[in-house]
């Protein structure tokens, strides 16, 4: 479904990604794990079109994304939950969700999708008229995910959804991600919380210093010696 081949990317003169190749198949929950600054967020930015790669190819459902702008990529069915959620704090919860359904394809079904999102995150319905800036950390993350779902994505990109959350909330969020995936949304999850992510995922990639250094089934990687040593202690 999504295919990155030998992607190189840089911020100005600083190269961050080196020959990164990743593949995500329809229906899968794939995770990309690695330490801070390894290039995880950059990889997501390349996929969602916020950063253009310097070389390599990237395609989604057989269609090249290299020249597509970020908003067009959303229309094609890729939606990203950025790091920290980046909800619109000055607007209401409902307005945030409505903005999630901005693309024409999603706007028609807005009401139905909204009902679905409220089913997954009942808390958001309770708070729909509240200003998003007043939400707690966990609620913000839910809103960010809900907002991304409003675009009816085929592929959902999640950037560190567990970051800064209490352990109980982390479990909740991960349960919800599994549920979303079970309902047919393909997921690419970027995480620093390696153990939880590997337990959850069908397949995983390990990224270090901008290079993919390992890949395999989530549970295999869990027992992978170097991964154990590096991340699980």
């Amino acid at each position: 479904m999504l295919k990155l081949e030998r992607i190189n990317a840089a911020y100005k003169d600083l190269q961050v990604l080196w020959d990164v190749s990743i593949e995500v198949n329809e229906g899968e929950l794939v995770t990309l794990v690695g330490p801070n600054g390894a290039g995880k967020t950059t990889t997501l930015k390349v996929i969602s079109g916020l950063l253009k790669p310097t070389s390599g190819s990237i395609s989604f459902q057989g269609r090249s994304l290299r020249k597509e702008s970020a908003h067009k990529i959303v229309e094609l069915g890729i939606s990203q939950v950025p790091e920290g959620g980046k909800i619109f704090t000055g607007m209401s919860v409902l307005e945030n969700l409505e903005l999630g359904a901005f693309v024409a394809r999603a706007r028609q079904d807005k009401d139905r999708t909204l009902k679905w999102v409220y089913e997954i995150f009942p808390r958001l319905e309770e708070r729909k008229n509240q200003r998003a800036g007043t939400l707690s950390g966990g609620e913000r993350q839910m809103l960010a995910i809900g907002r991304a779902l409003m675009s009816k994505p085929k592929l959902l990109l999640l950037d560190e959804p567990s970051f800064g959350l209490a352990p109980i909330l982390v479990d909740q969020i991960f349960d919800m991600i599994t549920e979303i995936n079970r309902q047919g949304v393909t997921v690419l999850l970027v995480e620093q919380n390696v153990r939880a992510a590997l337990e959850l995922a069908h397949r995983a990639y390990v990224i270090e210093n901008g290079r993919i250094v390992g890949q395999g089934a989530g549970e295999d990687l869990l027992s992978f010696e170097s991964v154990r040593r590096a991340y699980l202690g």
């Binding site: 916020l50 970020a70 908003h71 950025p82 980046k86 619109f88 607007m91 903005l99 999630g100």
Partner: peptide
């Protein structure tokens, strides 16, 4: 609303399509 969203955070706004 899209205008207000862009004013708040253009990157997040472009992720909304």
């Amino acid at each position: 609303k899209a205008i207000r969203a862009t004013a708040e955070d253009w990157e997040a706004a472009s992720l909304m399509g």
